[in-house]
Design a protein around this nucleic acid. Structure first.
Lengths: 191, 191
DNA sequence: GACATGAATTGCACGCCGTGCAAGAAGTGC
DNA sequence: GCACTTCTTGCACGGCGTGCAATTCATGTC
């Protein structure tokens, strides 16, 4: 299914807007960047900007890459331990982040400085949370939904801490096992 | 230190605004309630509204009650197990929520329906998170800050699940031990 | 009780946000 | 090339949030 011209144009505009937003923000800070300025730089009208994104923040934060279909399938049918298969799942996710390493680092800066942006980011992490909980539910049939949620949340905090330290040269994907190590340590702490 | 007239008036206006906001929202929904309408109902000018709250959302969500000083001190000097002392700390926190039970239930409704409100709520929970992490750090001197954060986050998720089920008649404070039970179960799950 | 002082309230003006609508431009399928 | 859908754009509008300066009001002092 080759992408039609329309689709390609949309992809491009969407990317153009994001780039324009990021460029402007890194130099002037989000607060003093107006949606109008972003639109102008992206070469579209203000009205079109709001056709693509509901506000400045989401243009910058966007939807984070989730878990690849293939990795989900592998996890569902996986025959390793929960620890092993989950680590593989996280690895696939982190690999996607590695692909956009430069953008991520840039974003990381912006998130540190701007409150509204952090809120938008939190919101998108919430989506990840329920995605992960849904996935985990397949392998944790004996557990209550609340427990699955708690588990998913904890996993995401641990994973988030990895992303926090993205300055390290090592690709995040290679560090996936650290997440589980953290969880083990946490479990030790609780008991 | 008797509160001066000025202070009492401020307290009152602050409460008036919150009440006006809650009342209007429950009948018409946050989206169709303007800051101007809230101000009018609270008997103040629009400009004054923004002197008290930076936006509609925070007027409704406000700052959640944190951990009482006394409980923090008791936790710091506590000689029970971490589990016991932490449960006491959570109990003190949940007791504050019980005091505002009616408002909490109302808020719970609103949070379910409104996205922006949820974001504001998340943000205020973030403050709780770092509060708790700071407190825990005193009793977890052997641990890295990351581990303390992870632990605090997990505790808060578990506690949040309790709050979710506030419809139950039982006061939240009495159910504090359930939080630790959840954590034990989680730890079992991980190992 | 009058008065000086500093803080809170208010109105006004302004720029930005985000949306509904309708006209026009552009791609798609035949 | 011709109908069709879809995307873009301009326009108008209401709401948000802030800076500023005028005014009102609590407070402490004499």
């Amino acid at each position: 299914m080759a992408p039609t011209l329309r689709q390609r144009r949309q992809e491009k505009t969407s990317r153009d807007i994001r780039l324009a937003a990021l460029e402007l923000c890194t130099t002037k800070g989000l607060d003093s960047v107006t949606a109008e300025a972003i639109s102008a730089r992206a070469g579209i009208s203000l009205r079109t900007f709001f056709n693509y994104y509901p506000n400045k923040e989401t243009a910058i934060v966007a939807r984070p890459p989730g878990f690849p279909e293939k990795a989900i399938a592998a996890f569902n049918t996986g025959h390793g331990s929960l620890a092993e298969d989950l680590t593989d799942l996280l690895r696939a996710h982190l690999a996607l982040l590695d692909e956009d390493r430069d953008i991520m680092l840039l974003l990381h800066e912006l998130l540190r400085d701007n409150k509204v942006l952090r809120a938008a980011h939190e919101a998108s992490l919430k989506l990840l949370h329920s995605d992960l909980a849904d996935i985990l539910a397949h392998r944790m049939t004996g557990q209550s939904r609340a427990m699955v949620d708690l588990f998913a949340g904890t996993v995401l905090i641990a994973t988030g801490q990895l992303v926090q330290s993205m300055q390290d040269e090592t690709p995040l994907a290679d560090r996936a096992p650290e997440a589980w190590t953290k969880l083990r340590d946490l479990a030790d702490l609780i008991r």
